[in-house]
Amino acid sequence: MTNQNSDFDSIIAQSPKMKKVVEQTKKFAMLDAPLLIQGETGTGKDIFAKACHQFSFRRDHKFVAVNCSGLPEDEAESEMFGYHRVGSESIGFFEYANGGTVLLDNVSDLSLEMQAKLLRFLNDGVFRRVGEDQEIQVDVRVICTSQTPLNQLVEEGKVREDLYHRLNVLSITLPPLRERKEDFIPLVAYFIAQISLQLGIVPPVYTDKFIHHLQHYYWAGNLRELYNVLYRACTLSNGTLQVEELDLPQDESTFLSLGSTENMSLDEMVSHFEAALLREFYAEYPSTRKLAQRLGVSHTAIANKLRQYEINKE
């Protein structure tokens, strides 16, 4: 993980999956086409988006991050493209960021109508302010993020298929923390240094057993959850970090800690629990057909779910 003002060189990536993603993203950063960054909550999608901006020729221009979940549906178009009314007018964030980069966080939370307007802008770079007929053209790199794979949201009718195909040209998926075991040692050292500085304490020491325990936890909240757990442990520490101070659920494959749910939506928590249940049942019913029969759903649905959550036979 990295701080807000850092670049790719400060992203901890010793695991093969992270190394590959960083190298791929560096290549994408230099292009103008829309970029799609997917990954679970807390995996650092916003950090990668910011790093892309800093790595590109647009680094001296604005970087505007927009949380699509927080855009009121009746104001989304005005916020995005601006408006002109009698006696007042305002520019939208695309116009404001001209020459720079716009990050659309949780792009799937835009209404289908707004997705259509976004698609038109992505295709030709022009838009109209609300209340105006004049077309405005701007030069903006658009980066979109999604916690749920967009192809799944297309099947659910929540994302336009044409927008998905437009965004899926340049796309990366950030690996979850549980698939980055080689990164735990430098990540823990980095977080503890940060936390100790913030708390004004001498950085506590810890053992290999402590790291091993962290490596074998599920981490539904990924980097964000790891930071929160370490913060709590550091506040309780008498100089040495103990496994008992982590306060992690005993059955970490199923239960969510408070730290992991802090910034998770209901859909994300349901997805985590669904994945945990599928892992348990798949161990007991080790074929997709048996599993589908046990859970009362179609074979195709189960196959799609196992693929979505990357659940394989042990």
Score class of each variant (00 low, 15 high):
residue 42 G to F: 01
residue 56 S to N: 10
residue 75 E to G: 02
residue 82 G to H: 00
residue 86 V to G: 11
residue 76 A to N: 05
residue 59 R to S: 15
residue 59 R to M: 13
residue 59 R to Y: 07
residue 35 L to W: 06
residue 75 E to K: 14
residue 81 F to P: 00
residue 62 K to C: 07
residue 23 E to V: 05
residue 21 V to R: 02
residue 92 G to T: 00
residue 83 Y to G: 02
residue 23 E to N: 13
residue 55 F to A: 12
residue 36 L to I: 13
residue 29 A to T: 05
residue 77 E to S: 07
residue 31 L to C: 03
residue 18 M to A: 15
residue 15 S to Q: 06
residue 47 I to M: 14
residue 21 V to S: 03
residue 51 A to W: 04
residue 26 K to D: 07
residue 82 G to R: 01
residue 47 I to K: 05
residue 87 G to M: 11
residue 22 V to R: 00
residue 55 F to G: 02
residue 21 V to N: 03
residue 84 H to C: 11
residue 52 C to F: 05
residue 36 L to W: 02
residue 63 F to W: 13
residue 57 F to P: 00
residue 79 E to G: 09
residue 20 K to S: 14
residue 34 P to L: 07
residue 27 K to D: 00
residue 84 H to V: 10
residue 18 M to T: 09
residue 43 T to E: 05
residue 16 P to H: 14
residue 93 F to M: 01
residue 65 A to C: 12
residue 33 A to M: 13
residue 40 E to R: 04
residue 22 V to F: 08
residue 43 T to Y: 05
residue 19 K to W: 09
residue 23 E to M: 14
residue 31 L to N: 01
residue 24 Q to T: 15
residue 43 T to N: 10
residue 47 I to R: 05
residue 91 I to C: 10
residue 51 A to S: 13
residue 19 K to T: 08
residue 16 P to W: 10
residue 68 C to I: 01
residue 63 F to T: 07
residue 58 R to M: 08
residue 17 K to R: 15
residue 39 G to Q: 04
residue 90 S to R: 15
residue 43 T to W: 02
residue 76 A to Q: 02
residue 16 P to K: 12
residue 27 K to P: 00
